[in-house]
């Protein structure tokens, strides 16, 4: 066992883990943050996307030890209390979720995209979410949701 100390969603945590555990396993099984989904388990679908020091990574193939001393943000860290984050609300309003399993990953990829590029074109959006797969709906509503989130965040910024 090894000790992993990291900051998850603003709180410092210290947890004993096996050195070969992935970040997704630690978040879900040891910290109970089950919003992060494991779907393919091979870094191919993006459902497990979290931000590591602000950068989107697939947590299912990220060794948990890589988070040592670093900041992790999961879908749980996005909303405040019971209030949905602007991106989450945009996904709801755009009907961008069907079974919902891929949604947390899409939302975290969107967060990374909009942090880096607050005013993306539709092409930028498609490229930004190209690391995430949805097997229910296709991507039309999802791209709409990201565009809507960008628009609302810009309006919020102007207030």
């Amino acid at each position: 066992m090894q000790t992993l100390e990291m900051n998850v969603n603003g709180s410092d945590v210290r947890v004993e883990i096996h050195p070969d555990e992935t970040l997704a396993q630690v978040l879900r099984d040891r910290l109970g943050l089950i919003g992060t989904k494991i779907a393919c388990g091979e870094g191919e679908c993006g459902a497990c996307t979290v931000l590591l020091d602000g950068v989107a990574v697939t947590s299912c193939i990220t060794p948990a030890m890589k988070a040592q001393g670093r900041r992790v943000m999961t879908i749980e860290g996005l909303s405040e209390d019971t209030e949905l984050h602007v991106i989450q609300q945009a996904f709801v309003d755009s009907t961008a979720s069907q079974c919902g399993y891929c949604t947390p990953g899409f939302i975290m990829a969107t967060k990374a995209l909009l942090d880096a590029n607050p005013n993306p074109t539709r092409e930028d959006i498609m490229r930004g979410i190209s690391g995430n797969l949805c097997r229910c709906t296709g991507y039309y509503q999802i791209v709409d949701a990201v565009a809507l989130a960008a628009k609302r965040l810009a309006e919020e910024g102007r207030k």
Binding site: G43, A56, V57, T58, T62, L113, R127, S130, G131
Partner: peptide, 8 residues
């Protein structure tokens, strides 16, 4: 890959 793979 995708952005996440390229980031790591």
């Amino acid at each position: 890959g995708g952005p996440q793979t390229r980031n790591a």
